[in-house]
Amino acid sequence: MTSIWLKFLGTSILLTLSACTNDSDESVHREPPPTVAEVPHETFVPAPEVVKPAPVSQKTRDTYQWYCSQCHGITGKGDGMNALQLAVPPRNHTKADYLETRTDQQLFEAIKLGGLAVGRAPCMPAWGNTLKDADITGLVNYIRELCHCEGA
């Protein structure tokens, strides 16, 4: 019984100290992220008719590719090139189960102020000095398109 508690305590301390990156031994070989050819395209389904998110401009899609895809992946599945190194995995934007519990305002603030400021993972930096509010609103709409879900 004691050993279970000790393990739990140990894990919690490690998680707290390691901030956002995975503290495991780097010598463990990791598979590189899949190249674009390996990412199955047919899994990227356009939004169904039921939910109609605000139209997403090409500029917003480019912004997502330029900045967000580094962690969230080019199709938003949370499998970007940094994903394997992070203790808290980047959010999968194609899954509704968590995102539909968030309001658009909450997503907006997470992007603008960063994870730490909104009580989420500190790996997510604040983008408020890089992106304009209108760009961030665009990204929230794009996430809604990716998850096929609406805000709570």
Binding site: L17, S18, A19, C20, T21, N22, D23, D25, E26, Q70, C71, G80, M81, N82, Q85, L86, G114, G115, L116, P122, C123, M124, P125, A126
Partner: peptide, 25 residues
Amino acid sequence: FERNFSCSACHKGVNLAGKPHGGES
């Protein structure tokens, strides 16, 4: 470096054991 400005999400730094760790973009 790690928490307030999330640098290690994308940059390799060093962990508490003195080994390289952090993102790769």
